[in-house]
C-alpha cells in the first residue's frame, strides 16, 4: 500500500483513563474566545501544567519520548460531558489526528468527525494491548481508514470501527453544510407543509 493511502501515519502515546470529560480536555477558562484558534497550548491544561504554570513532568505529553505524538490512545467513554467543540479543536491544534478509545461520548464523536479528527473505536482487549505498547514507547502507527485498521510497527493490525458515512466524511473534502444545501427544495417543502400542519411551531415573527 502506498503512503498516500493511509489516513495518517504518526506516533502514539497512551492516556489510559476512563471517562475523560471535555472539561479536562479544555477547561472553561479557555472558552472565552471568539475564534477557532489558539486552543492547542491549553489542551489537558490542569493535568499538563503545575499550579505555577510550569509543565508537569509526570504528564505524558510533557515526557521527552512522547514529543511530536499525533495519535492519542485513550480509555473508555472518551470526551464525555460538555458539548464544547473546543475539545476537538484543542486536540487537533496540539497535533493529534487520531484518538483511539474503546468508546466515545456521542457529541464529542460528532464534533471530531466535523473537524476531520478520526475517533477510532477498538475493542477493550485491543485497547489494553495497544495501551501497554504505547506506555512503553511512542509507537509508530499507520492508520488505514479504508481497511479500518491500525497497523503497528511490527506489522500487527488492530481493527477499529467507524460508520461508513463518517468514514466518507473524513475522506471526502466535503462541506457538510453544502450536503444539506443540496436538499433545499425538500427543506422548503417541509417548511411549507409544517406551516399548515403545525403552524404554532412556525412563527412568522418573534420579538423579545
Amino acid at each position: 500500500m502506498s503512503q498516500q493511502q493511509y489516513f495518517h501515519q504518526g506516533s502514539a502515546c497512551a492516556l489510559p483513563i476512563d471517562n475523560v470529560d471535555t472539561d479536562q480536555i479544555i477547561p472553561k477558562q479557555f472558552l472565552t474566545g471568539i475564534s477557532r484558534d489558539g486552543f492547542g497550548a491549553a489542551l489537558f491544561y490542569d493535568w499538563r501544567y503545575l499550579d505555577d504554570g510550569a509543565p508537569n513532568p509526570d504528564f505524558v505529553l510533557n515526557q521527552p519520548q512522547f514529543q511530536g505524538v499525533s495519535i492519542l490512545v485513550a480509555g473508555h467513554n472518551f470526551g464525555c460531558g460538555s458539548s464544547r467543540e473546543h475539545a476537538p479543536w484543542a486536540l487537533a491544534q496540539f497535533g493529534f489526528k487520531v484518538v483511539v478509545a474503546s468508546s466515545f461520548a456521542d457529541i464529542f464523536y460528532r464534533n471530531c468527525i466535523n473537524n476531520k479528527l478520526l475517533p477510532a473505536q477498538v475493542s477493550t482487549t485491543d485497547l489494553k494491548r495497544l495501551t501497554a505498547v504505547c506506555e512503553q514507547r511512542a509507537e509508530a502507527i499507520k492508520v488505514d481508514l479504508e481497511q479500518q485498521q491500525l497497523v503497528l510497527s511490527n506489522g500487527e493490525a488492530i481493527p477499529f470501527s467507524i460508520a461508513s458515512s463518517d468514514r466518507d466524511q473524513l475522506l471526502d473534502d466535503c462541506d457538510f453544510i453544502g450536503v444539506a444545501e443540496q436538499h433545499l427544495d425538500a427543506i422548503d417543502r417541509y417548511e411549507n407543509d409544517r406551516a399548515t400542519t403545525v403552524p404554532w411551531f412556525m412563527p412568522l415573527s418573534f420579538t423579545v
Partner: peptide
C-alpha cells in the same frame, strides 16, 4: 446538545 459546527449547520439550513 450539539457542537459549534452543527450550530453553524442549523443556522444555515435549519436542519
Amino acid at each position: 446538545g450539539i457542537g459549534t459546527s452543527e450550530v453553524e449547520h442549523v443556522l444555515a439550513t435549519q436542519t
